[in-house]
Simulated assay, not measured.
Amino acid sequence: MEPQDIRYSRTPHTEKLKWVNHMVKLMDNQFRLPGTNFRFGLDPILGLLPVAGDLASFGVSAMLVMTMARHGASGKLVALMLINIALDTLIGSIPVLGNVFDFFFKANEKNVRLLTRHYEEGKYQGSGKNVIIGVIIGVLVLFALLVWVLWELAAWIYHQLAAIL
């Protein structure tokens, strides 16, 4: 399935949001598994790098949500988007299971679909400056939660290895 482009004629920001479409394709659908229609992007590949890859994917997803918020996404829509990236980041950071999860759960693509539906339903609200502070706080909370989960996971793995050796 190809990612859905953001289409909305009610805003002058169309050119600025082309970056969002490009990044979503890169993160979620850039590559196709030969002989199939299955697509994947850099997100699951970055997930193979412990901690750093998950943080990089989270950073890109957070920037996409902030960009969409600046261009008229409602507070409710941004909250849904943050839930998507929280699921993607937290479950994606689990070794092995998270890597498989990352290939199928495409948070950025889901967020673009949410934004597209938002514009098609005529709920565009103009500038999202009022939502930006909430987004920043949400992203910081998610980042802190991610760091804590990764720390706990690393400590658990360390104790498991210490018990074996």
Rank of each mutant, 00 (worst) to 15 (best):
T11C: 10
M23C: 09
V135S: 11
P95N: 11
K76S: 14
E121Q: 15
I137W: 11
W148G: 00
L49Q: 01
L115Y: 09
P50A: 07
L80F: 07
V65N: 04
G59V: 11
G134A: 06
G59Y: 05
D5Q: 02
A79M: 06
N111T: 14
V131E: 06
Y124K: 02
I164V: 14
H159Y: 10
I157G: 00
M81D: 05
A107H: 05
E15R: 11
L64P: 01
K25F: 01
G134K: 07
S61Q: 11
K110T: 01
I157V: 15
G138D: 07
V24N: 02
G126M: 14
M81S: 14
Q4K: 06
S61D: 07
G126W: 07
Y8V: 01
H71A: 06
R117I: 07
T67G: 10
S127N: 07
N111P: 11
I136E: 05
G41R: 03
V96Q: 00
F143H: 04
L77G: 04
R117G: 03
A69K: 00
T11H: 09
Y158G: 02
N99K: 00
A56I: 09
T36R: 05
T67Y: 03
I133V: 13
D43K: 15
I136Q: 08
G41S: 12
T116H: 03
L26N: 02
I164D: 00
V100M: 11
F143R: 03
H118P: 02
L146M: 15
L115E: 04
I83N: 04
V131Y: 02
F103D: 03
A73V: 10
G122Q: 10
N130F: 09
D43G: 00
F31D: 02
N108H: 08
